[in-house]
């Protein structure tokens, strides 16, 4: 009996050790650092003070970047929801034997480096890029259209990165819906649209919310698309952390910003778990 009680813990111990050493300990370091000070040479001075947090909230500048990050994350979620539902629904309703190949194609972009995928947009959206080249060549425009280095191009880079997460989450949720429910709705006089609105959509909400949470959290912590595809006013909170930690060697202030971001994300995840249940994400990841 005694040995049975310990067995799960013994089996879990490698995973728990990894989580503890690679996640909990570094986060603790970051929290401790956030109370330290930076010396004029860039060395860290051990201290316990709240100056770094006070600096973050001292005026509107830093919180405004945090708010922009939240706004862009929400935009990214909304776009991924709209763009992701269509292919996920197609996979669900499709009877083709190539369904697994189509799903594999969704994963295909992950085989290419994220940096290369992001930079490739420069060749598509740039002044001398593919789109402008043909718009000018066919006489539709005389001057190139400014499509790069703005919030639109940042969102484009983010969607390219995050859309597969959303599609897979929605698809897994749709796959769990018994198709006889749709048939029942149709036999009771529902139109195709009504059946979708009254049956499919509500039952796929867990997948939509799980995908939204993943997309939101990943957007809030990303820094490559704003750095490569963004203009001067498109920086997000992760870019700010990068600059403070790497650019000015101000690890204490960079840590304080990281803790603020972490706190915000924890509140969102907690709220999600409280009302929708975090297990939806694991279901999707397991492909249930």
């Amino acid at each position: 009996m005694q040995s049975k009680r310990w067995k799960p813990w013994a089996l879990l111990s490698p995973a728990l050790s990894a989580v503890f050493l690679l996640l909990v300990v570094p986060v603790c370091f970051i929290v401790v650092y956030s109370f330290w000070l930076r010396s004029p040479t860039g060395a860290d001075i051990a201290a316990f003070q709240f100056g770094n947090y006070a600096k973050f909230f001292a005026d509107y500048f830093y919180p405004s970047i945090l708010l922009r990050t939240i706004r862009v994350s929400l935009e990214s979620v909304a776009l991924c929801l709209v763009l992701g539902y269509i292919p996920a629904y197609f996979f669900y309703r499709s009877e083709t034997r190539f369904k697994s190949v189509l799903i594999l194609l969704i994963m295909l972009p992950f085989w290419i480096s994220f940096i290369i995928r992001t930079m490739s947009w420069i060749n598509i959206l740039g002044d001398t890029g593919l789109i402008n080249h043909y718009l000018i060549k066919f006489g539709i425009l005389s001057e190139p259209l400014g499509m790069l280095y703005n919030e639109g191009s940042v969102l484009m880079g983010l969607i390219q990165y995050l859309l597969p997460f959303m599609i897979l989450n929605i698809y897994v949720s749709l796959e769990g819906i018994d198709k006889s429910l749709l048939e029942a709705a149709r036999s009771m006089g529902c139109t195709e649209w009504q059946a979708f609105k009254e049956v499919t959509l509500p039952l796929s909400l867990p997948g939509l919310s799980a995908g939204s949470l993943l997309v939101f959290v990943l957007t809030a912590g990303t820094y490559l698309p704003p750095m490569i595809l963004g203009g001067p006013k498109n920086e997000m909170i992760a870019n700010l952390i990068f600059k403070r930690v790497i650019g000015t060697l101000d690890w204490p202030f960079g840590s304080a910003i990281s803790v603020v971001l972490l706190g915000l994300l924890l509140i969102i995840v907690w709220t999600y778990n409280r009302y929708l249940g975090i297990n939806q994400i694991f279901k999707s990841l397991q492909g249930e």
């Binding site: 004029p40 001067p232 650019g247």
Partner: peptide
């Protein structure tokens, strides 16, 4: 000697703040 002060001010200007 001005690294942090200048870098932080520059960040604000660059962001239009």
């Amino acid at each position: 000697s001005h690294q942090v002060e200048f870098a932080e001010k520059w960040d604000r200007i660059k962001a239009g703040g």
